[in-house]
Simulated assay, not measured.
Amino acid sequence: MGGWAAGRSDDMGRRGEERVWALLDALLESRSEPGLAARAATALGLPELGRYAVAALPAGGGAAPGVRTDTDGLRVLWRRREDREIAVVALGEREVSWLVALLGRWCPGPGGIGPVADGLAGLGTARRLADVALSTCPPGTTGIVRLEERLPAALVVSQPELSDRLLAGVFGPLLALDPADRALLVRTLEAWLECGGSAGRAAGLLYCHRNTVLNRLRRLERLTSRSLTRPRELIEMTLALDAFRLTVPQP
């Protein structure tokens, strides 16, 4: 009798825990249910209103699903969703940069963090945008990124059909080059952009002469029929570069 009662109690406890996590999953999926946020707040022991962040990482990149981790006063709830691990964090007064550093200690990345949600009801949007932030990380890269740092790339990955057209329309002739030649021009453009348009500083990154950088950029302009000195055409080039990084296999 005692064993049966204990087993039933354990079973009831598991069902209760499953209901708790089901409420969190419903929030992450942006389900529209009256009183959902309030019920989840009670079940999870979290404030209904407050600052929350959601991070998305590839499966195997974080903690076990359902585990709650209190680290330096920061509460982290982990959930597994298809090929993602989702971390829901009650930030309190902490800045998101603190969370970036914490996740970076737990896993190399890549990982994406959405905008801060003002309450549990905003977790669905924060989760969706965390997925978008993760999608801006090119294959093979590491690090935890915030959506606010990747907005142009986020626009590109959010519109794959338009992204394909942009890539073909701007970088079409570049894509036809030998992969090694193409990679050289792309890396030169990346370095020039990283250095704020300074050919001299880009040359230092690339271990070549400043004139070599300028010659490569002029060749890139000829291939794309766009000028890096015209703001609108420069925007097209940078967006096409994001599309290239995210969709074209790198040598």
Rank of each mutant, 00 (worst) to 15 (best):
E17H: 02
R31P: 01
S9C: 06
A38E: 15
A22K: 13
T42W: 02
D11Q: 14
A22C: 09
R31A: 08
L24W: 03
A43D: 04
R15N: 11
D25S: 12
V20S: 04
W21K: 01
S32Y: 03
M12C: 07
G16N: 11
R19H: 14
A43S: 14
A41V: 09
S32H: 13
A40C: 13
S32V: 12
A40T: 09
A41E: 08
E17L: 07
G7H: 07
D25A: 12
G45E: 10
M12V: 11
E17I: 01
A38D: 12
A40P: 04
P34I: 07
D25R: 15
G7W: 06
L46P: 05
A43M: 06
G7P: 00
S32P: 02
R39T: 07
E17G: 00
A41C: 09
P34S: 11
G45Y: 09
T42H: 07
E17N: 05
E33K: 09
G45W: 11
A41T: 06
E18A: 13
A41I: 07
A22L: 15
R8E: 13
E33T: 13
E18L: 10
P47H: 09
G7N: 08
A6Y: 02
S9V: 07
G16W: 06
E48Q: 15
D10M: 10
G35H: 01
L46V: 12
E48L: 04
E48C: 08
E29H: 09
L24M: 15
G16S: 12
A38L: 11
A41W: 03
V20E: 05
E48P: 06
E33A: 14
E17Y: 01
G35L: 03
A6V: 08
G13V: 02
L36S: 11
A37C: 08
E29L: 14
D11I: 04
L44G: 01
L46I: 10
L44D: 00
R39N: 07
L24K: 04
L28T: 01
R39W: 02
L27R: 00
